[in-house]
Amino acid sequence: MEEASKISRYLYTVIILFLIWLFLTASTDAQELEMGLVLSLIIGALTYPIFTTRGLANLHPKRVAYAVAYAPYFLWAMIMANLDVAYRVLHPARPIRPGIVHCKTVLKTNPGKLALANSITLTPGTITLDVDDDDYFIHWIWVPDEALTENEEEHVKAASRNITEPFEKFLKVIFG
């Protein structure tokens, strides 16, 4: 992936740090704002090479809109998955069929892969064990029948459709 220019990466880091400062202080006192700006400029200068590779392109309106929409979508997925696990724990027969499955992702950037891995882990029932390029190895609480196949290709397809694809339609736009 191509790197954005230094100025763009620096500005993006400063903007994000300043937003964090606003949340942290929860105050619009002029003194707090001045100090926040100064600190964002200094810390941004020291940390931007580590923080970002794409710079201001991250703030494309479409990406921001998808990121905002992703929050409730993800929360809903999380609530449903929690209820599902609670059902499995409380059910007398304990319908658990654990297994490690292999998924593939279409995401290319590292932040995207991180977001996907965390989304998978935070929805109970699935835990990301390892990420290797575009391969995800995931521990699943109930491996459905369609993924229980000897055929590697079918297996990956079935697992990806169930685990990674629901998140990917958002993350693909947010992180590319």
Partner: peptide, 13 residues
Amino acid sequence: SVVLTTGSELLFP
């Protein structure tokens, strides 16, 4: 893994 390295890169600032 990529999860660890990217996570610490993003958290650092």
